[in-house]
Nucleic acid binder design. Structure first.
Lengths: 333, 333
DNA sequence: CATCGTTGGTACAACGTGGTAAAAATTCCT
DNA sequence: AGGAATTTTTACCACGTTGTACCAACGATG
């Protein structure tokens, strides 16, 4: 690979002058600039990013830490984040944690300032202490809700309100025995969505029935199907289910249909995430639609501001918008 | 951040000795090793990857270039590739091209050897000349089929055979007017899958009807739905559709159901990719299942061998296995 | 006792880039 | 023309790491 030096000797100038041309320094004679540019293309010069970053003290990378790329929500969100990052001249390094606390910890621990300029983290199971221990001196923007009050930048929708909106919709269409799938003591978002569910029930004067709160180990289709099977084996089955994400909802949908139930007539289903699939499933899925594009842009902008501005500013807690997409799984065709 | 030097002065040895400890060099006195290790943990030493790579002449990164992460197939595959790469101490940089030739070209051009040790590329629209122009001196493993004969490492299933298998299955269950969705002159895979389709028809002595070959600009659900709508407006509608990927199939499924057709009784549908969704959709989708895990592992292993072995070896063309997952969209419940 | 091989350690240079400061070239002004 | 001001270019170094070469101590050997 050609280096600054090679270009310099070919153009008959010093390496620094070449560097100046590369970096758009103003005071280079037009004639020299031309010769340098010619030499650059002649040898196919490409700056060595590693060396440049070593010199500049930055890496040019950010890490994006998500549970799993194969989960459509994270696939879609990651795509948007990568696109937003490119506008800031960042390359994105993706790490997967499977939503396990140990892997979230070790990933965070492995991401020193040498590796990345900053990190966008979508934690599932991390706890307060983990941050104070591991997030020292690195810029982190957290995505998704968390229960703990931390001095960390944070972008998310109002999960409690979103869940409440979803359940209120079910109540609004006349449902009274509303179940929820996805309870999980280790997941921060689960607690918030459960809180919204409870608020909506309370506001409507409906009873809180513990047998209608079904846990889910992970948030995949299989878990949703299993949870729905459990619900349908109850003496009195629910007339609606609020699932903590779309995948759970698709699994639940499938399990309900397998048992011959009509959706939404026998049982209405609401999801959370508005993955692309939700508009095409049969029936299409009513779901909470976080503004993913806004989340991606906001997170990147915030991280950029945090990393590039010299002065400190207090941690930001930014709420992005969401909407309820009403589809066939609650109101029929 | 602490450096080797800091650790060295604290431990009372030279920086190189610390380096030797870090790299597991054998001849370090136990006593010194202990002191160095203590000093390292005392100052929280973390090697500067950039500097190390600058010195070693490698980067520790590979690029993964895919059309879109939000496409479930690529989300799932990327997840597996990242996991496989981690076992080789590689971090993965993901780039998206939207399947556009221009973006595939510019991405490839931007990935010099300084940036990444190698590249795993899933091209949609690249042409032969692009490779000879842009792939000079960088290690590339290509995923997915391509028509052009190139001297580039390559991992894929036999697309022609896979498509032929899918269509033969439709013929086997008695279908005679079999349409295909996804024809696209700019996509390498489309040509191969179309070839398999034609082979299967020819083998069964069925006519090749051009009105049953529907193009798709992109391979999203929307395209599948539009294509299906077009097929259903034909004077004589098909009794089966082979879609070039699962997303097209889901869109087609939805469009057919919207018009009151029963699947598979009125029209059978086969997809391609075996995305997780295909096992849970209503009806579940019969589809070609490439061995994604094998693709991911093979690609990483091949790239690693290419990059780390000093001697050259001829370009490999490795075929991985696939299977046909027969589900409800062709055989009912 | 001189020599040798082994083990353990160090100093130095270099990877490619860009900041600093000083040198060189050019322009402008009196 | 002489000097100051400005523009242009350069030499040098540092970023943090590791390979090379070399040195020192040691016990073993002849």
């Amino acid at each position: 690979m050609a280096t600054l030096k090679d270009v310099a000797s070919l153009a008959g100038v010093s390496a620094k002058t070449v560097s100046n041309v590369v970096n758009g320094y103003a005071f280079v004679k037009p004639d020299n600039r031309r010769r340098v540019l010619e030499a650059m293309s002649a040898v196919g010069y490409r700056p060595n990013i590693g060396a440049r970053n070593l010199r500049r003290g930055r890496t040019g990378f950010i890490a994006l830490v998500v549970p799993e790329l194969s989960i459509p929500y994270f696939g879609e969100l990651s795509g948007l984040i990568i696109t937003a990052a490119q506008e800031r001249d960042w390359n994105v390094l993706i790490e997967q944690t499977q939503g396990e606390r140990d892997r979230e910890r070790s990933t965070l621990a492995a991401l020193g300032p040498h590796i990345v300029d900053g990190t966008i983290l979508s934690p599932e199971a991390l706890q307060t202490g983990d941050f104070t221990e591991l997030a020292q001196g690195i810029s982190i923007v957290m995505l998704g809700e968390h229960k703990v009050d931390l001095d960390i930048d944070h972008v998310a929708i109002d999960n409690v309100l979103a869940a409440q909106t979803a359940v209120a919709h079910l109540i609004g269409i006349g449902r009274r025995r509303i179940a929820v799938i996805g309870q999980n003591p280790h997941r921060g978002t689960a607690a918030l969505r459960l809180e919204g569910y409870r608020k909506a029930l309370a506001l409507a004067g409906l009873p809180q029935l513990s047998e209608l709160v079904v846990p889910a180990q992970t948030y995949h289709r299989r878990d949703g199907a299993e949870a729905m099977a459990q619900l349908l084996s109850l003496p009195e089955r629910p007339d609606a289910v609020f699932c903590f994400n779309d995948l759970l909802a698709f699994g639940a949908l499938r399990a309900a249909a397998d048992r011959g139930l009509r959706i939404p007539e026998d049982i209405a289903i609401v999801g959370f995430d508005n993955t692309e699939e939700s508009g095409y499933s049969l029936p299409s899925l009513t779901t909470i639609a976080p503004n993913k594009l806004s989340i991606a842009r906001t997170a990147i902008d915030l991280l950029h501001r945090r990393v590039s501005s010299a002065e400190q500013f207090p941690p930001q807690d930014i709420q992005t918008t969401f909407s309820l997409e009403v589809r066939e799984s609650t109101v029929g065709r």
